[in-house]
Design a protein around this nucleic acid. Sequence first.
DNA 1: ATAGTTCTTGAATGATCATTCAAAAATAGT
DNA 2: ACTATTTTTGAATGATCATTCAAGAACTAT
Lengths: 203, 203
Amino acid sequence: MRQLFILRIMMRSAEFNREQVLRAAIKAFMVKGYTKTSMQDLKQATGLHPGSIYCAFENKQGLLLAAIEQYNKDKADEFKQYFDNQSSVLTGLKHYLEDTVTACTQGGTEKVCLSQKALNELAQQEPLVEQYISNNMLDWQQGFVDMFAKAQQLGELNNARSPLQRAQSLVMGIYGLRSYAHTHPESETMCYLANQLFEDVCR
Amino acid sequence: MRQLFILRIMMRSAEFNREQVLRAAIKAFMVKGYTKTSMQDLKQATGLHPGSIYCAFENKQGLLLAAIEQYNKDKADEFKQYFDNQSSVLTGLKHYLEDTVTACTQGGTEKVCLSQKALNELAQQEPLVEQYISNNMLDWQQGFVDMFAKAQQLGELNNARSPLQRAQSLVMGIYGLRSYAHTHPESETMCYLANQLFEDVCR
DNA sequence: ATAGTTCTTGAATGATCATTCAAAAATAGT
DNA sequence: ACTATTTTTGAATGATCATTCAAGAACTAT
């Protein structure tokens, strides 16, 4: 009787590790794409039963959005390591491009970019996802804008093109690199293309 | 009785127009992608009943392959118009890039490239499709190789880079352009990127 | 017109899909 | 230990999927 008036919060905390689950989902979506990844695939990949997934992420699309959020967070942390505490900004960019080539040349899960793959699949189909990814990609591009601005301040670049223009060309180039990798070129060709992109963007 | 020995070929010709059907399938696949395009969608788009589709193309994947074949044929014809009977090869390339930008900037069916979209969706999943598209893309690239070789012969380009290297950079750049368009940049930005690509590839 | 053959039709099939939900297990406060 | 609450479980649901196939329509040659 007394307990009817005393409402305390008694929560049982969820048992799964959110980041771990999301990274498993990221892998699954990267390999099969959004549509072809079934809830059964996701159950197997994440170890979560359907009910838990729906409880935590609303539905399959919610899980995708959460996965993309985690993916961008991870990539942003990675990004910082290339350009923070680096005397030469352009050296950081060079390494960034080299590692990108390595990633999409070696046959692994990380061959593709989740954002690019999902955007390509769901643009014109799922406006919510489309908008979300587009915004994230603008954030990513802004990182390059800041990097190029810093490079100009340090005298590593001339003022022939604005940081924004260089960043746009670079982002476009990286999209192209990743797409080109799908046609199975030799690693040598990929290195050449990445190097050429670097030179064009820094000219 | 006599007719048992006289075997003549009596064929009823199929009623549908193959090219028309394939172009309808191309549109459908470009909008929804391969997986999300159901046989019901294809029935509606092509006007063919399931049985006829299976009779003509074996299955859904067969229809995709036939559609990609038609798409590449159409694109190859289109390609020729830019570079045949043209005094300046590079002017042809400029127009080609301008029209590509127009296509993916304007909101229409032709916003995407069927080959690029299908390759992005089915790479790592459908080796047969993957191989088929990769080969077609090499043919497309070879067209650019020949174009750059001709431009060098005409003195429109220096020998700083080989025709193959230029063609690879160009193909990569076009992949990038089309991907970049998915993030909804202003038409102005797309024009700038295409122009920059042109300059980089012809430098 | 008739017979032989091919093409078209579209309902039926069985598989797989995303999603739901009631019951069971687990947690926290008393 | 007991009650209140939440999470986990996984079978059930209804929709949709690619594919099949038997029956009907259409064509060709006689």
